[in-house]
Amino acid sequence: MKPKLTVMFREEPDRTGFLFDMDSGASVVLNRTGCFLWKLLEAGTPPGELPGKLAEACGGALPPSAAAETEAFLNSLRLGGWIGEQGGTVTAPPGAAAGNTSPFPAK
């Protein structure tokens, strides 16, 4: 899973954050755990490794439901259109057909 190219992430000083989709104008607020997981996705961490990375960050002490909750978070990102399969459903920004990978159209 990879974030769509048109999704911007901003982390706030309190380590919460939000996502903004430049195509649709949709936004979603992330708590600290959501921000942590989002940054791992941006870095290319495979979804199956997310619960282990979360456990490492928390000193290994996670409730038994953590893996299921992480999968639920990923499912909500998938259903919301925030992430897609690698190499498949990632939406390119305007102008990408001309080789422009910026979210702004080529001049």
Results as ranks from 00 to 15, higher is better:
A66K: 04
L74E: 02
A43Q: 15
L74H: 03
L62M: 13
G48N: 12
A57G: 05
A67F: 02
A66C: 12
L54T: 11
T70M: 05
S65Y: 01
A57Q: 04
A61M: 05
E71Q: 14
E71S: 15
K39Q: 13
K53A: 11
E49S: 12
L74S: 08
A57F: 05
A61V: 11
A55Y: 01
L62Q: 12
G60D: 05
T45N: 03
G60L: 09
L54F: 08
G52K: 11
F73N: 01
P46Y: 01
L41T: 13
A66V: 02
K53W: 05
R78I: 13
P64G: 09
G44V: 07
P51E: 01
L54G: 04
L74N: 03
S76A: 15
N75Y: 07
K39N: 13
A67D: 04
G44Q: 04
P51G: 08
A66L: 08
G59I: 07
G44E: 01
L74D: 01
S76E: 14
P63D: 13
A68N: 08
S76F: 01
F73C: 11
L50N: 03
L41W: 00
E69F: 00
A72P: 06
T70P: 05
A61S: 12
F73I: 02
G59H: 00
E42L: 09
F73K: 06
G48S: 11
L41E: 04
L40E: 15
E69V: 00
S65D: 13
T70W: 00
C58D: 10
G52Q: 10
E42M: 09
P64C: 11
C58P: 00
E42P: 01
